[in-house]
Design a protein around this nucleic acid. Structure first.
Lengths: 346, 346
DNA sequence: CTAAAAACCGGGAACGATTGCATAAATAAA
DNA sequence: TTTATTTATGCAATCGTTCCCGGTTTTTAG
């Protein structure tokens, strides 16, 4: 331990100056003569002086660190989004503290308290799938604390929001399956609390309607934990396949849902896409290597992260409180591979 | 912004006490009368007082945050390890700051400077595959700064180290392929700088020797960036397959290497395991869904993270400088699936 | 040659919390 | 009653940095 860093005082003492002069010299103040500046800066460099960020935080009442809350970092979408966030944050001198909710409302609140106590300057959050009550976020927001939602945005809170066009993603996916001859298309949806789920369901619904296919509510199964545990997906698919109106294709509306759906079909020896076709939202970068290769709706995760952090930093560094909030919607990308293949005659 | 937190001063003023009394009352000092304590504690609770961690850090010269440097968080092994790290760290009141080297030596140094400037109390690092020179770490270590290496440990530095038995993992994998009738087994290895690569190569070598198969150095190709870019893997496999002594099986010694190897075989229309068999180190949890399903050597990533952070915190909280360092080796797990299947007559 | 204006630098308070020391009052012992 | 001891509280320094407020030169203007 005992990792004694060199301070501005050490420099002052060594050079026979006052701390204020040293401080000003290092910050290139006009009040300091060029010669003094030169001496101070050179000496500081020589002994490898680094300003203490903690002392600065205390003085400036900001920590230059921002909090991120996601459900899981071991999820392609989020790890990509975090990469996007970091790429900008580090450039602007912010560091990020990452917390995981593991899709639990309770842990989300705990995380938030924790981050708040670490005095972060702002928050980037994609709410847990259990999150229905928003009081914990509303409280902070009311006190002017900067919050930006990404991906899983919420409705009743006026802040910056960044996500994809979920409606379009689901609409396109559904249309693709219909184009391939499927009439009975089920939806394996995420948590009903999430607006992204609602939007995806709406896109699915509309595509059916536009193609003159009757909408059947029993063709939708919601997974509260977004497919985090396999059991949940197993139950959902079990009841979808037991439907009178047995589906010939499935849309999975989240990363984990997609892979667990495929896993389920494998375990039941259902051949994709012949026995049942599928297409899913996923940001995995090896969906091309799966068996069969997966048709997916991919979200621009990296860009979402970048846009979100930019909005957040802009809000943090704003002198006046922000009143105009932006909602930015990026387009999803559909990649067609084998799993959504045309339904063959049997 | 103006997110004004309540301080100990506010309490003191409101209650007509001094800040020292309030501080002591909140820390339950014996010097404060029970009545005063009660008043202070109740009022603090009422106005939701939280001690300012930054002020504390400044005073106590510790930030209660630890740094993690890994190559990529979007890598199953590392995201699982980070989960393990967090599970312990948060319990003990530490937060973690994650930085990614993206397998670049240069960025690793930048990250280290950054983390040091954020005055972390300790460091958990899995070095980049480019890292050969260790001066940046040696400097810190000499000054008594707590560092724990995990997974990619280095040799010439006396610190705590946590990893898996790479030798055994590679030995078992090689033996499995030999058992399945393969005599020409190539190795797609990671960076030559990394000790884990050396250990894996050694395990592979020994297994060949033990089975009376001649070792051929041209059957090994090293990938400096550990498979981060596909190009690298493409070149390596290209030259392995162009060998006179053409391999009938390949061992991939890292996560990205494994998946990119499979991707290469697909692109060349090589059927696995009939045209060429493979087994790889991987912590992906959908290797069972790949086509073919992959035989893998899996590392206990979560546990590695947990053990590493425990050692680090122990060292941080030690009064006296640590002199005895531990090296903990956990066992890998071999999961046999289709890709390593017996070689069929053609 | 004097007065005003730059130019340059130091003292010390402040940020929020802890803590050794001093001090006051209250109680106990002599 | 006087002295010693305990009890309860306050003062002030400290951590590293910035910045307001002065102060002392030196330069410039009249």
């Amino acid at each position: 331990m005992k990792y004694e860093a060199v301070t501005i005082k050490d420099i002052a003492k060594a050079l026979g100056l006052s701390t204020s002069t040293v401080s000003r010299a290092l910050r290139d103040s006009y009040e300091i003569s060029p010669e003094t500046k030169k001496i101070v800066i050179e000496y500081a460099q020589q002994i490898n002086y680094r300003p203490n960020p903690i002392a600065l935080s205390l003085k400036e009442k900001r920590s230059r660190s921002i909090g991120i809350i996601v459900c899981e970092i071991a999820n392609s979408f989020f790890s990509q989004a975090i990469n996007g966030i970091e790429s900008i944050a580090y450039d602007k001198g912010y560091n990020v503290i990452i917390a995981q909710s593991h899709e639990s409302y309770e842990r989300e609140i705990l995380n938030l308290q924790y981050l708040a106590s670490r005095s972060i300057d702002g928050l980037l959050i994609s709410v847990s799938s259990e999150t229905e009550n928003l009081d914990h976020l509303i409280n902070l927001h009311k006190r002017g604390f900067p919050i930006v939602f990404f991906d899983r945005v919420v409705e009743n809170l006026d802040t910056h929001k960044v996500g994809v066009d979920n409606y379009k993603g689901a609409y396109d996916a559904t249309s693709e399956l219909i184009k391939n001859g499927h009439q009975n298309i089920a939806m394996l949806a995420g948590s009903e609390f999430l607006s992204i789920t609602k939007e995806r369901v709406a896109g699915y619904h509309q595509a059916l309607t536009d193609h003159k296919i009757a909408f059947d509510a029993s063709q939708i199964e919601y997974c509260l934990h977004g497919g985090m545990n396999y059991q949940e997906v197993e139950n959902a698919l079990g009841s979808l396949l037991a439907n009178n109106n047995k589906p010939s294709a499935v849309i999975a509306s989240a990363d984990k849902l997609t892979t667990n759906c495929l896993r389920y079909f494998k375990s039941k020896d259902l051949e994709v896409p012949n026995d049942i076709a599928m297409i899913g939202f996923s940001n995995l970068d090896l969906t091309d290597l799966l068996s069969p290769s997966l048709s997916v709706i991919r979200q621009p995760a990296y860009e979402i992260g970048q846009v979100a952090i930019e909005l957040l930093i802009k809000q943090i560094e704003n002198k006046r409180p922000t009143t105009e909030f932006e909602k930015i919607i990026l387009p999803p990308q559909m990649i067609i591979r084998e799993s959504s293949g045309a339904k063959k005659a049997r």
